[in-house]
Nucleic acid binder design. Structure first.
Length: 535
RNA sequence: GCGGGUGUAGCUCAAUGGCAGAGCUCCAGCCUUCCAAGCUGGUGGUGAGGGUUCGAUUCCCUUCACCCGCUCCA
């Protein structure tokens, strides 16, 4: 299977278009067409229904330590700038970069270290990426620049310690980490992975704000509000679906890495002692969700992060990954991350930005010894009114990409098989085998031929079914062609009015995948479709 | 960000420094009683901007987008 055929079908049938296509498109932005919007709505509605509104909060679900509650939330895209400073996104996504004019490489300004060195009567500042073998790299660069051999290593006279590039004011005597000539590094330039905007009519730094790079923070800052307004006890999950924005450096692979995308996130708040069990529960539950909606086990994997990949406060993080056709053999792309986040986020919004690298999650301090970013100062801890215990809840975060899920379902559904035409000759058929719950159109209604009163009956059936499902009416051309068109759109059922309908009020219903037709009464159409979708 | 490739109709692909063509699709009509049938007719295109030229889709420059590899990123 190749990705080009899928992209081509998406365009042809109206699943996905390039954004602003008539102006040449815009990198990293995609529009959903008439079929795509239905598919994506169905993905989101399946998630919301399965995770939130349809959640059984009375029972202990399989694999869960106890019953739990679920609530929803819909927060703004632009939030108080301090949210992103305390969450760590501001520091992480807001870098100063220097480019090398000679090698065209780009480096993070604060991650280049260097040292003054003198040889042959000349003093220069050699640099290297910050890291363990930086001195080795510096020596190599210096030898190369001064055209010295290894045995003349003692001719290099180092002056002062290794310091960060940020301590220099002028780069004229600086040798870039991979450069051969001096002064090739540009001035540091602001590089923003968060989209910046301005609140208020006057644009000045005081009104600077950011489009959210994730929906999660809206849930953390509203945790207390949800708790107070709903009177829930923990464990409690809060769900949100919404747009997020990241100024990705290299958007690629169709909609997989977009700059504007939609997330489906749950922050699940629980007692620290139970957090490991809840982590395992959510990991397994979320994997099963994709399976149940038709993604086969072969193409879906759970990848547990190694201990050394984890932030130290995290007990575990697992990615649910799909073998997208545009990835090479054995490679997978992330659909969802399920992580154990401890009390990191709530505490950050209470106390201020925490230092992830410190073992006790200490407050991160600025150069002046004061907290780098001040928290809200609000108490976000939870008091259990049964045990009277007070604690900052731990959080399990299943964070899914709606666009990535939609793309995975599209890729998984794309099938080419062989079916006989009217002369019995085998023909290639392209069919989108989407799960009926996800299919944009649930059923198409056709008159077998455009005469003998068949269109009139078919239109009645159509209008009646339209009250319950997204359905489609078509009377143009041969019926075989109409079936094939629906196959490409992923429509699971086709209802056909034929000669016998005129006599006994029955129609045929055709199954997309098996091509089998069964005869049912017109009155039964709605319930038959409803039952089949539910299965 | 770097290197390479591509950009012609809705799709797949031709051609040319001098009228841009085919198949499929799509639309209309006829015909048609179950899986892309047939007949007739029709719609529709050189990614954008600039330059060279009498004339550019073709040559040159810039730009945008997509694909591959690297880089980056979660």
């Amino acid at each position: 299977m190749n990705m080009d055929s899928i992209v081509s079908l998406c365009k042809r049938r109206g699943f996905l278009f390039q954004s602003s296509e008539i102006y040449g498109g815009l990198q990293g932005f995609w529009d959903y067409g008439p079929l795509g919007v239905e598919l994506k709505r169905n993905v989101k509605e399946a998630w919301w229904s399965d995770m939130v509104n349809g959640h059984d909060d009375m029972s202990t679900l399989s694999g869960a330590p106890s019953p739990y509650s679920m609530e929803g939330l819909d927060c703004t895209i632009i939030m108080h700038p301090q949210v992103w400073k305390c969450s760590g996104h501001y520091d992480l996504f807001h870098d100063h970069m220097v480019d090398c004019r000679e090698t065209k490489k780009r480096y993070r300004y604060d991650q280049i270290n260097g040292r003054w060195v003198e040889a042959k009567g000349r003093t220069i500042f050699v640099t290297a990426p910050a890291g363990e073998d930086e001195q080795e790299h510096l020596t190599k660069q210096a030898l190369k620049f001064f055209k010295l051999r290894n045995k003349h290593i003692d001719d290099l006279k180092w002056e002062g310690p290794v310091v960060c590039l940020t301590t220099l004011e002028n780069f004229d005597e600086v040798l870039g980490p991979d450069a051969k000539s001096l002064g090739s590094l540009t001035e540091p330039r602001e590089f923003n992975l968060m989209f910046k905007t301005f609140v208020g009519a006057l644009s000045g730094e005081e009104g600077a704000a950011f489009l959210r790079p994730e929906t999660a923070q809206g849930i953390f800052v509203n945790f207390k509000n949800v708790l107070d307004s709903t009177r829930h006890r923990l464990p409690l999950g809060i769900a949100q679906i919404g747009k997020s924005f990241r100024n990705e450096i290299t958007p690629r692979n169709f909609t997989f890495r977009s700059r504007e995308f939609e997330q489906m996130e749950i922050e699940f708040f629980c007692h620290p002692d139970q957090s490991q069990d809840w982590y395992r529960y959510w990991r397994d539950r979320r994997l099963k969700w994709y399976h149940d909606l038709g993604i086969s086990g072969d193409n879906l994997i759970m990848r547990e992060h190694h201990q050394n990949e984890l932030a130290h406060y995290s007990v575990g993080t697992a990615d649910i990954e799909y073998a997208f056709p545009f990835m090479s053999e054995g490679e997978y792309g992330e659909l969802e991350g399920v992580s154990h986040r401890g009390d990191f986020d709530l505490r950050s919004h209470m106390e201020g930005k925490l230092d992830e690298k410190s073992t006790d999650l200490a407050l991160q301090l600025g150069a002046d010894g004061k907290p780098k970013w001040k928290g809200s100062g609000k108490d976000l801890s939870y008091r259990d009114d049964l045990t009277n215990e007070k604690y900052v809840p731990h959080v399990i975060e299943p964070s899914a990409g709606a666009d990535r899920a939609a793309l995975a379902f599209l890729c998984e559904a794309y099938t080419e098989d062989e079916q006989p035409d009217e002369k019995g000759k085998m023909q290639t058929r392209t069919v989108m085998k989407l799960h009926p719950r996800l299919a944009p159109i649930k059923a198409a209604i056709f008159p077998l031929v455009k005469k003998d009163g068949m269109p009139e009956i078919a239109k009645e059936v159509y209008l009646d079914l339209k009250k319950h499902f997204k359905v489609f009416y078509d009377e143009k051309g041969a019926v075989g062609r109409r079936y094939r068109r629906q196959d490409e759109a992923g429509t699971p059922y086709c209802i056909t009015v034929d000669g016998q309908t005129l006599e006994d009020q029955t129609v045929t219903i055709r199954d997309r995948d098996s091509l089998e037709q069964t005869r049912i009464k017109i009155d039964e159409c709605e319930s038959v479709i409803r039952n089949r979708i539910r299965q």
